[in-house]
């Protein structure tokens, strides 16, 4: 049996599945890169940011990391580019542009 989500994929056999399709680890969704979904991308303009942090709780994808009371750049692995943070920022510190891939 594979017990770690990183080892569980669409190629493993029924014998390797966790019993009762349970998962024994926290936050295994982090393995999924929903950043691929983005069409538009937020651009963090640190110079304009006043660190009010209003953008952070509005992010549905937990993709604005906070460290020592300050927001960092986006977690682009998981940010889906919804643009909510762009709208809620009172200081125009986030741009929203077409993503070049």
């Amino acid at each position: 049996m594979k017990t770690k989500a990183k080892d569980i994929n669409e190629k493993i056999t029924w014998q390797e599945l966790t019993t009762g399709v349970e998962i024994y680890e926290p936050a295994t969704s982090l393995l999924v890169e929903t950043g691929d979904w983005r069409v538009d991308v937020p651009v963090f303009k640190e110079d304009k940011c006043k660190q009010c942090l209003l953008c952070v709780p509005f992010c549905p994808d937990s993709s604005i990391p906070v460290k020592d009371g300050k927001r960092l750049d986006f977690d682009f692995k998981h940010c889906k580019g919804c643009g909510i943070c762009v709208e809620v920022c009172p200081f125009d510190a986030i741009d929203f542009v077409k993503e070049e891939k």
């Binding site: 009762g20 399709v21 349970e22 998962i23 024994y24």
Partner: peptide
Amino acid sequence: PLAVGPYGISPYYMEAKRQ
């Protein structure tokens, strides 16, 4: 922690039933 009762997409559902 333990997570119970996932959405079982087609690539897993049948293996789950076989188990």
